[in-house]
Amino acid sequence: MIDPHPSEVELLQIAAAESSTTCDASVLLHVAGCDSCRHAIDMLRAQATALRFVSRPGHRTDDCLDEESIAGIAEGNIDLNGSPAIVTHILGCARCARELAAAARLLDDAEVQRALDDRSTNTAPARRRRPLVIGSLSLAAAAAVLALLGRATLLSKVAKPAYREESVSSVAAPVLISPTGVATAPDTFRWTAVPRANRYRISVFDRSGTVVWEGVTRDTAVAVPDLLWHSANGTYLWGVEARVGWEDRWAASDLAPFTTRRASAR
């Protein structure tokens, strides 16, 4: 062979990867024509395969690493050189070894990395305003999620460190009147009035929890925006928050689902 042999690093990278697409083309060309390198790679693969054939995660024991230790090792907070007991355990416990490798892969994920670096951002994974296609299962889940998430979405915007007046939970919340269920041609969101409320904020969510529309009014009704009609048979959840007093305190309604059916006249 005229070309120099690949380095040990390159040989191991090729051996460890089922696909060689990440390797340099010249290295792959060399390996294709070099019996010695191919053999070296095969030896590495045979060793790895033999070990993988017998690897099996056992059941969790009291000695197994907890989630915090796994996370600490994966992010490099725990120095394994100074933790011989942990090393010994991992070497003898395929379950913990597998957990550790999985946690490390997760924390190396680019999207997870961004979220870890910027976790104070209150944005949803994506504020998409795409056409909606509702699966059969999702509405119940979406309702459950939004029961948890919706209030957070709304209340987190107005969080104040402490309340000295009556709590938000003791203030009457608006009750949604319409639309609910399948709405062939709803043109107005309606809800009950809340005593001392001076503003209402209406939020419409798609099933991924993304806010697709928000509106603010002093009234207890507001027109359904046209954008909700762009896709027929879209399913949404909506809710209303009432601002009571001037301390930026809001009382949130429950969330109600509704499905738009495009009427022929519309």
Binding site: A115, A124, L137, S138
Partner: peptide, 29 residues
């Protein structure tokens, strides 16, 4: 409320590491 507001993105990113199916992401969430 405050916790979800702050860590929602991380939770979604973790879920999306394993599934990109929108229905599943919401159900798991």
């Amino acid at each position: 409320d405050l916790f979800v507001g702050q860590y929602r993105r991380l939770i979604f990113a973790t879920i999306r590491h394993y599934t990109r199916d929108d229905d599943e992401v919401m159900d798991v969430f």
